[in-house]
């Protein structure tokens, strides 16, 4: 009798449903990883062979029947730089206002709601808006500047939110200490808060670069699909310029898969690099 109860207490009751669910959990996690690994291997396997010097250093030529992405690379660089030049200061400013100045209330709620709304708007809507507002109303047409302005709105929430997190992570005692010895608010922000939050701000910028490089739907109607090399550094801003992703979409529509895979490999490799960088910075910030 005693033996029996003892064994029933120590013996684990096995439930079939537990094992089934556990198997499903493992399967789901495995699936997520397998999809990623599959994508990376497939893209690398198909993409690496099409990457060579001509591919990287020339523009599409119908006479020589060669294909290259140099023009698109430069356009991507242009769009990244211009977008960040506008979006970073604005985003950091907004984050500083929200964390350092604003008192909780209606105004902050409205700003946070709209920032979240901006983050939720799909890129195709940005594309349409950019086309009619920057393209038609401001007469920028299909140009790199038009695309950059559109993307500025798109990456703004990323920068605001990430910077806000970084600012919130600066210990309150730093602020009190600075104020206590007579620093004014802006002086405190400039000399203490911002340097402390720098890794977070850099993370925000890197995340934004990732988004800009991967964007296509918002650019196809705003920056267009030009692939020519710039004739002048500043002139190029007002010319049409397709980024790597836009070029990839066009090649895809024309059925040129080997070009697509070349670009896809570069994009995936770039995204991988960006993820590693942000991981590194976040871990540095936590220390």
């Amino acid at each position: 009798m005693t033996n029996q109860t003892a064994s029933s207490l120590t013996k684990k009751k096995t439930r079939v449903s537990d094992y089934v669910l556990l198997a499903l959990i493992y399967f789901s996690a495995f699936l997520a990883v397998a999809i990623l690994v599959g994508i990376i291997i497939y893209v690398a396997y198909k993409g690496i062979p099409s990457i060579n010097w001509t591919f990287l250093s020339s523009i599409p030529s119908y006479i020589n029947k060669t294909f290259g992405i140099l023009g698109n690379l430069i356009n991507t660089l242009y769009i990244v730089v211009i977008t960040l030049l506008i979006a970073t200061p604005v985003g950091i400013g907004a984050a500083i206002y929200l964390t350092e100045y604003a008192k909780p209330g209606k105004v902050v709620r409205v700003i946070e709601f709209t920032t979240e709304t901006l983050a939720g708007i799909p890129s195709i809507i940005y594309g349409l808006f950019g086309m009619v507002f920057f393209g038609v109303s401001l007469k920028l047409g299909f140009s790199i500047l038009c695309g950059s302005l559109t993307l500025t709105l798109m990456v703004l929430p990323t920068i605001v939110r990430t910077t806000q997190e970084a600012l919130k992570a600066v210990p309150e005692s730093y602020r009190q200490g600075a104020m206590g010895i007579g620093a004014t608010k802006w002086y405190m922000i400039r000399t203490i808060i911002l340097p402390c939050a720098l890794p977070g701000i850099v993370t925000a910028v890197i995340l934004s670069i990732g988004r800009i490089v991967g964007e296509s739907a918002a650019l196809i109607f705003t920056a267009g699909s030009g692939y020519l090399l710039p004739t002048g550094i500043f002139e190029h801003i007002f010319k049409t310029g397709g980024t790597l992703t836009v070029q990839m979409y066009l090649s895809m529509s024309n059925g040129k898969t080997e070009q697509c895979f070349g670009i896809a490999f570069l994009l995936v490799a770039f995204v991988f690099l960006i993820n590693c960088l942000t991981k590194f910075l976040t871990s540095k910030m936590k220390k």
Binding site: L36, V43, M248, Y249
Partner: peptide, 15 residues
């Protein structure tokens, strides 16, 4: 790995 999936551009998924 999951985070990397989020970063892959949508055109690559399309391809």
């Amino acid at each position: 790995a999951v985070e990397l999936l989020a970063g892959i551009p949508s055109v690559v998924y399309g391809l």
